[in-house]
Amino acid sequence: MKRQIAAGLGAATLTLGIAVSTGASADALPQTQQQTSSRVEIASSRMLETVHQWQETGYWCGPAATRHALTARGIESYSQSELADRLGTDTGGTDHISQVTGVLNDLGAGNYKTVETLSDPMSDSQKAALWDHIVESVNADRAVVANIISMPSSKPDHYPNSTIYHYFTISGYDSDTDRVRIVDSAFGVARYWLPFDQAARLIAGKGYSYHDA
């Protein structure tokens, strides 16, 4: 399904181990098509460049995802350790997506806002807002950071077959294939494309941080 392009809790976060740098990267951008008019040109797909890092501890997915979003703006000077301090991350993880929003704003990444306490499953209106927020953020050269719950029924193919609390970064979209591009700090695949509906299932019940253009 080609998705229309628009012109935006709680528990501690923990992953099961740290990925290694030998993981594959599914990073190719689908063929881009464009719609043009006398006033505006809208690409049906776009992705941002980010500097990837694997998370340095089993509970630093929040700092790593925040760093990925910062690097989309060319901000590369902050280590995961420094970001963990700013986020209040401890051995239980990063407690809330709003902590990510605050740090992104404090460090000059953009005008970030938090969407939280989403129903599970998301309503149609929540999914539509998520898509619009991804498109608007990426079009403004900002990535989205998402707090997720991965379960066997919704997990990406390369994730463990268990329930995992995690953060990842969304750095692109393709409306022709209805997918979003993920930058991930764990589980062996640094970058990959995920069906939008699957991403919405992962974020449902948690929240995300997006740039309000």
Rank of each mutant, 00 (worst) to 15 (best):
S79M: 03
N161M: 10
K2G: 06
S150E: 08
G172R: 04
K2C: 07
A84E: 03
S171K: 12
L107T: 01
Q55A: 07
D174H: 11
G207V: 03
S81Q: 15
A28T: 12
L202H: 00
S154H: 02
A84W: 04
I203W: 02
L70V: 00
S25K: 15
I5L: 15
H158C: 07
G23A: 13
W193A: 05
A146P: 07
G205T: 01
R67E: 01
L87Q: 04
G188P: 05
R86M: 09
A11C: 08
A109L: 07
G172I: 03
I97Q: 07
A72F: 02
G188D: 06
A129G: 05
T169F: 02
R86V: 00
V180M: 05
S209T: 06
P30I: 08
S150Y: 08
G110W: 09
S171Q: 09
A19S: 13
P121C: 03
S185R: 06
G62R: 01
Y112C: 03
R3G: 05
Q4G: 09
A12K: 11
V115W: 08
V51R: 11
P30R: 09
G207Q: 03
T50E: 04
A11E: 14
Y208D: 03
R39N: 13
S119F: 06
T32N: 12
T169W: 00
T15V: 12
K206P: 00
S98Q: 13
P195W: 00
L70Q: 00
K155M: 10
A28H: 08
R201G: 00
F187H: 12
L83F: 04
T71L: 00
A146F: 07
S185M: 05
S123V: 01
A69S: 06
G110P: 06
R142K: 12
I149F: 05
M1S: 14
M47N: 13
S38Y: 08
V100T: 04
A128Q: 09
S38M: 10
L14W: 10
V40L: 14
R201I: 00
D120A: 09
N161L: 10
Q80A: 02
A7C: 10
L83G: 03
V115D: 12
A24K: 15
S21C: 10
N161A: 12
S37Q: 09
W193K: 07
C61I: 01
A186M: 10
L9F: 12
D176E: 14
D106C: 01
Q80R: 06
A43F: 11
T15H: 12
T89D: 03
R3W: 05
D157R: 14
V40H: 13
A19Q: 13
S44Q: 14
Y208S: 03
V189C: 08
I75Y: 05
G102Y: 10
H133K: 14
H52P: 02
A28I: 11
T117F: 15
P121E: 04
P63E: 01
S77C: 07
A19T: 11
H158A: 09
D132W: 05
D157Y: 13
H68N: 05
R191H: 15
